[in-house]
Simulated assay, not measured.
Amino acid sequence: MFLETFPRLTFWDVLDILIVAFLFYKVFTYLAETRAIQILVGLFVLLVLSVFAKFLHLYALSFIFNNLLTIGIFALIIIFQPEIRRILARIGEKQFGVFSSVEEAEKVIEEIVRACATMSEDRIGALIVIEREINVDNYVESGTVVNGEVSKELLVTIFWPGTPLHDGAVTIKRNRIHKAGAFLPLSLNQSLPQTLGTRHRAAIGITEETDAVAVVVSEETGAVSVSYSGKLIKNLDPQKLKKVLKGLLVKKSPEKRGIFQFLRGNKGEEAA
């Protein structure tokens, strides 16, 4: 019979297929939110054309398409390099938080919330990046080393209009302000609203490249937003801001680590 030509599937074969399918699904779902998916679709079209050319014995076209696909495989490594790095970084996260104790986290978060409340009221633009497991220095250009304790007064002073460092971002490592006046990579996500300014795009950009958390205060509206994993949560009052930061920065139990967080998809509120 026809079915007898196929090997008998066991439970482990089915499980193997389901796991591979699930991993492919998660990777493609992740890539679908980036510009890389357009390139992937183009390569898939080339593959289909190559198969048709070979089937119709169009040898010249088949030769061209085959060579384009060969080059495309190597090009994928370069083109998808940012996306591959983000996926590997997310899988390799040691823990979702950064502070070793609730007390340490609450002290830093309280100062950030107080500073943001003041800057929001006074319409002072600000961008604060809190480093987690991935070193953000590899993605930050310039910046002046401060190495100061995180406090409302210091943060407001740094971002006060007219000061030399107010235009850039502040980076925080553990419970210290590491740099001020730093410039961050802007997000290349074309689906972001055109109304988003440079600060918000920089906040999204650094959280696309690393596992950092970024807090943004809009100079135009005073609205406070939080970005993580390329997502943006907007219009947060002080209480909501504190709650979001505690959820992102306080270390959680082991089952919430890297690979599980990636498999769950890190769903957050999209930029709107």
Score class of each variant (00 low, 15 high):
100 S>E: 15
85 R>V: 03
88 L>N: 09
99 F>T: 01
125 G>E: 10
89 A>T: 13
101 S>L: 06
128 I>T: 02
124 I>T: 06
106 E>I: 03
106 E>P: 00
113 V>H: 00
68 L>Q: 05
69 L>I: 13
138 N>L: 11
103 E>S: 01
134 I>V: 13
95 Q>E: 14
73 I>W: 13
84 I>V: 14
112 I>L: 08
57 H>L: 12
126 A>T: 04
115 A>I: 03
61 L>A: 13
67 N>Y: 14
67 N>E: 11
94 K>F: 08
133 E>D: 15
72 G>D: 03
137 D>H: 07
118 T>E: 12
139 Y>M: 05
113 V>T: 05
117 A>D: 15
100 S>R: 10
80 F>I: 06
78 I>H: 12
130 I>P: 01
122 D>K: 04
118 T>I: 15
69 L>N: 07
134 I>H: 10
101 S>G: 09
78 I>E: 14
100 S>G: 15
93 E>P: 00
79 I>S: 10
130 I>V: 12
87 I>L: 10
105 A>R: 00
121 E>N: 05
118 T>D: 09
66 N>E: 14
134 I>F: 09
118 T>H: 06
76 L>A: 11
88 L>W: 08
105 A>N: 01
92 G>L: 05
59 Y>K: 11
62 S>R: 08
100 S>N: 14
65 F>E: 01
70 T>D: 09
106 E>M: 05
73 I>P: 01
75 A>M: 11
